[in-house]
C-alpha cells in the first residue's frame, strides 16, 4: 500500500472550501461538503477502496437523514470541491428513507 504522510494527505485535500459558510446558513450544503472532506482526510491514508468504503460508512452511520438528504440533493459525485474519496464514496451514501419522516 502507499502510505500518505500528513502533508501529502493535506495536499490531497487542497480543494476544500477555505472557510466555513456564513454563520447559520448552509442552504447550499457547503458545511456538509466540508465535513465530508474532513472525513475523507482522515481515511485518505488507507487504501483507496477501503477508505472510500469507510467514508461512506461513517456518513451513513453518523449523519442523520436530513443531512444526507441535503448532501445528496446539493451535490453530485463529480463536484469539484470534493476530496477524491468523497467523490468515490458518494454513490455509497444511503439515501434517506423518507417514509420515516411522517409524523408518528
Amino acid at each position: 500500500m502507499t502510505i500518505l504522510t500528513g502533508r501529502s494527505a493535506i495536499e490531497s485535500g487542497r480543494s476544500m472550501p477555505p472557510n466555513d459558510p456564513p454563520a447559520g446558513v448552509d442552504s447550499d450544503g457547503k458545511r456538509l461538503a466540508m465535513m465530508a472532506n474532513q472525513i475523507a482526510l482522515f481515511f485518505a491514508i488507507y487504501p483507496t477502496e477501503e477508505a472510500a468504503a469507510a467514508v461512506a460508512n461513517h456518513i451513513n452511520q453518523f449523519w442523520g437523514r436530513a443531512m444526507r438528504r441535503q448532501f445528496l440533493a446539493s451535490f453530485s459525485a463529480d463536484d469539484p470541491t470534493f476530496h477524491p474519496l468523497v467523490a468515490r464514496a458518494f454513490t455509497r451514501i444511503r439515501p434517506p428513507d423518507d417514509r420515516w419522516t411522517v409524523a408518528p
Binding site: R31, A66, D97
Partner: peptide, 21 residues
C-alpha cells in the same frame, strides 16, 4: 424505533436555520 442516526446539536441548529427543525 428509528433505524438511522438522528441529528447532533450543531446539525439541529443548521437544520433550524434551514427551516426544517
Amino acid at each position: 424505533l428509528d433505524t438511522e442516526a438522528g441529528l447532533r446539536i450543531p446539525n439541529m441548529l443548521d437544520e433550524a436555520v434551514g427551516g426544517g427543525f
